[in-house]
Simulated assay, not measured.
Amino acid sequence: MDPIIAATHADPYPYYAQLRAEGGLVFHQGLKLWVASSAATVAAVLAHPACQVRPAGEPVPKTIVDGLAGEVFGRLMRMNEGERQRCPRAAIEPGLALIDPVEIQTLVSARLITPDAEGLSKAMFYGPVCVVATLLGFSPAQTREVNELTADFVACLSPLSTRLQLDRAHEAAEQLRGHFFELLDDPDVHSPLLNGIKQRFASSDNEMLIANLIGLCSQTYEATAGLIGNALVALIRDPLLLRDVDSFLAEVQRLDPSVQNTRRFVVAPCVIDGINLNPGDTILVLLASANRDPQLNEQPDTFIVDRPNRRSFTFGAGRHQCPGQTLALSIASATLRQILAINPALDGLTWHYRPSLNGRIPLLTEAQA
């Protein structure tokens, strides 16, 4: 076991507890990086200005730097610091917080979900992006294409992707860019979300805006799929956990988050947890471990639906905290309600985790008789 393999391990949480016992920030000789595992250290790393989201000498991964997916990546607010992060965030975040959960429920309810493993997987991976695309003003036919293209585009974000997947990611980025250009230029689009974003976007750089609208879809695709999937896994294990859907999901995202870790890259000398860090150092930030730190939550390994003062790093913290947290939880809540309404035979399902270095996204299959 190591901190990266842990993300898709059947039960990584005892290992995370072992890491916390060894110290909040320790150097992993095998991976050649620092590992932050305690709540206090994770909070310190995420807040420190010297700990940034990309290496100073590699703002875009080398595998995609020469294609359009790399151009989009380089403009994403989540992959930038300073004004290149603040400007698109200030345009997009306020509108996400204003979306009516009833509207989300209506959009989710309009989609047919079947109770088998394939139908539930489609609800995880197809529904969320289609909701976001609809809210942005795309037509029903366009939302399906945007979802398929987003699925191809997210491959550029994974170091595990093959050359073929990366080529398809570049093609998807080009097609998504075209769809968003047309959307922004269409006077007949009546989307309160998109209109608000356009009004708040304090720049004439349409490429920056389009890249971050693509980023909104790509973040929705994986993180929300994982949240819905891990909620279903929790119910497969113990159907009695579910009483209130929203509280149940809030505990799922704390206890078994779809984003297990993230990385920060040291760009200036700094001291964290009493340890001197130098430019060029990499820190693997174990969000999932911090969520189970007893210094953050009492009885951290117990699923408590009505947990008081629940605290979580799943959606990050500080300047790079996920702006779509409320939206993701609303979509997951609406989707889970719709799934429960069709009464699927969850005890007939099994799962394994999608290969990933940081994500915990279950892939559901029918259990063998």
Rank of each mutant, 00 (worst) to 15 (best):
P94G: 05
M79S: 10
A250T: 10
S203A: 10
A231L: 03
R54C: 00
N212Y: 00
I361L: 10
R292H: 07
A97Q: 04
C87K: 12
E58P: 00
S247N: 15
H9L: 14
R177V: 04
S218R: 09
D347G: 03
P344D: 09
A211I: 00
Y353C: 08
C270G: 12
L107V: 05
E182Y: 05
G82L: 01
E171M: 13
A290K: 12
E103V: 14
L68G: 05
H170T: 15
L349H: 02
Y126D: 10
G178Q: 01
A151Q: 06
T106R: 06
L193K: 09
A123F: 01
E174W: 13
L232S: 00
R200V: 12
E118I: 12
Q325R: 10
R307G: 00
V65A: 14
I283S: 13
T8I: 12
R319V: 06
N261Q: 05
I99W: 04
L25G: 05
S204Y: 15
A36F: 12
I236Q: 07
G274S: 08
P192I: 15
D347A: 01
P257E: 06
A341Y: 13
A47F: 09
A97S: 11
Q338P: 08
Q295L: 15
D167G: 04
N278A: 06
I331M: 12
L76W: 04
L241A: 07
A133Q: 02
L213E: 10
F248A: 13
T302P: 13
L96D: 02
P159S: 04
L340H: 01
A40G: 13
A290I: 03
A17I: 09
V271D: 06
E71R: 04
R310N: 11
R168V: 05
G178P: 06
V129W: 02
A56Q: 05
R168P: 04
T335M: 07
D2E: 07
Q85M: 03
P12H: 08
A290Y: 07
F313L: 06
V65H: 11
P344H: 02
N206T: 13
G280S: 03
L327E: 02
R163Q: 15
Y16W: 15
T314D: 07
F73L: 10
T224F: 06
R54G: 01
A369I: 15
R177N: 08
